[in-house]
Design a protein around this nucleic acid. Structure first.
Length: 420
DNA sequence: TCTGGGGTCCTAGGACCC
DNA sequence: TCTGGGGTCCTAGGACCC
């Protein structure tokens, strides 16, 4: 009754470090970490660095001794490079012709249900990525995404780099008995702690938990994890989902206290976020601005805050959003505040069919005015007007009209009350 | 004094992921 | 002294409507 699928998870090994190694071969075989922005904390570790017991996310100053002693090499990050390399890996994998879900910068799922020999196919995929792009990978194969993810962890210990779980049954149970529950995809530190207290120590214990209990305690997500571990597919492969939100934020090197400094920072975030939105042909229907105090300093004054502004018309124009963001910062700011981080979120993203929006905005004001005049004329003649809300009508002068139409940039006929 | 039930939408916050 | 920057999904509760 169950239709069995075969899912693979392809995971790039120590991805950022592997990227750096491509351009600095002398880093091979060495303990290497890549640091976050401002060289704040560790975001990637080579196998050798993991052997030094360097945890993910530790602040740099805590591992500085290793670096000073020559045991460890720390690199600043280069996200443009990683993005580019990721693109190449994903493209190489897509050429195999299987449905693909790019899950993160260094991972993707492949639906191998139609593959005749999944393990051999993935061995070839792995060889190809290594040869064409130069990035080492680990590939896990199983019948659900959650199991495939676990299998890819185990694949790292296999010399072949590809590891397939047996179908659900005693043999799989034996393997899951050796996997700590905290290593299961979807079980974070919070839920993991509670599970341990309940005596649920391994992935097998979790798979044997009562689904209804999990549903009650941890909601639908908890129940899904249990089912997936049993081999019941609950999480589907999702091919290219358009983004639903875009964030741009940074921690400040020092503390920011002045309104103008805060404003300048937020302005740059708005600019970046808008660029991202435009390049993905997305437009926001809401804008959130947040500022945060130093959460690591218990004595720091709590001056964190966030405001959300809803837009009547979706936009990805820097100038427009900057206007709102600036006002929001002014409202969030208060004297005596010491801020450590700030950012903006573009929310409620919709498809931006008006790729010429910014063009129109800059050079087509005149045409907008002419259109508005034409509308006036028709209004005067007919009393009310039927307007085609096409993307070409998006000049600022048409905004009041657009507000009465569909909230999205859809092309449709709509009734609009008399303007002016 | 009695005081429905079902639906939607929105928001804030929590938990998780890489 | 120094502690990242993105994302997603789910839930609960309030407002509002009929």
């Amino acid at each position: 009754m169950e239709d069995r699928r075969t899912i693979a998870l392809v995971d790039c090994n120590s991805f950022y470090v592997s990227c750096e190694r491509l351009f600095e071969p002398k880093l091979s075989g060495k303990a290497v970490v890549v640091l976050s922005n401002n060289d704040g904390c560790v975001v990637a570790r080579s196998r050798e660095a993991k052997a030094l017991k360097i945890a993910m996310g530790v602040p740099f100053f805590q591992i500085k001794d290793h670096v000073d002693a020559g045991r460890l090499i720390a690199m600043s990050s280069n996200y443009t490079l990683y993005g580019d390399m990721s693109h190449r890996v994903m493209r190489t994998l897509s050429e195999l012709g299987f449905p693909q879900e790019v899950y993160s910068i260094d991972e993707c799922f492949l639906d191998l249900s139609d593959a005749v020999e999944p393990v051999a196919t993935m061995a070839e995929a792995r060889r190809r990525v290594a040869h064409d792009v130069g990035i080492p990978t680990s590939i896990g194969i199983a019948c659900t995404k959650t199991l495939a993810k676990l299998a890819s962890d185990l694949a790292k210990e296999h010399p072949a780099g590809v590891y397939a779980f047996p179908p659900p049954g005693p043999e799989l149970a034996k393997i899951l008995r050796n996997v700590p529950v905290i290593d299961v995809w979807g079980i974070g530190p919070r839920i993991g702690k509670v599970l341990l207290e309940l005596g649920v120590h391994t992935a097998l214990d979790l798979a044997r938990m009562n689904v209804h209990t999990m549903r009650e305690r941890y909601g639908i997500t908890g129940a899904r994890v249990v089912q997936e571990l049993r081999g019941v597919r609950c999480i589907e492969l999702e091919e290219v989902q358009p983004k639903q939100s875009i964030t741009s934020s940074r921690s400040f090197a020092g503390q920011v206290t002045e309104l103008d400094d805060l404003r300048a920072a937020v302005a740059s975030f708005v600019e970046r976020a808008c660029e991202k939105a435009r390049s993905g042909h997305r437009a926001a229907t809401a804008l959130t601005v947040f500022i945060e105090h130093n959460r690591f300093d218990p004595r720091a004054p709590d001056c964190s805050g966030a405001l959300t502004h809803h837009l009547s018309v979706p936009t990805n124009l820097t100038s427009e959003l900057m206007h709102y963001a600036s006002e929001m910062v002014r409202r969030l700011w208060r004297p005596g505040g010491r801020w450590k981080k700030a950012g903006v979120l573009l929310l409620g993203l919709v498809d931006d069919r008006s790729q010429q929006t910014s063009f129109l905005d800059q050079v087509d004001r005149e045409r907008g005015k002419a259109l508005a005049a034409a509308v006036d004329e028709i209004n005067n003649k007919h009393g009310r007007l039927v307007v085609r809300c096409a993307a070409t009508c998006l000049s600022k002068d048409w905004r009041p009209l657009m507000e009465r139409c569909s909230p999205r940039y859809t092309t449709r006929w709509d009734e609009v009350p008399k303007i002016g």
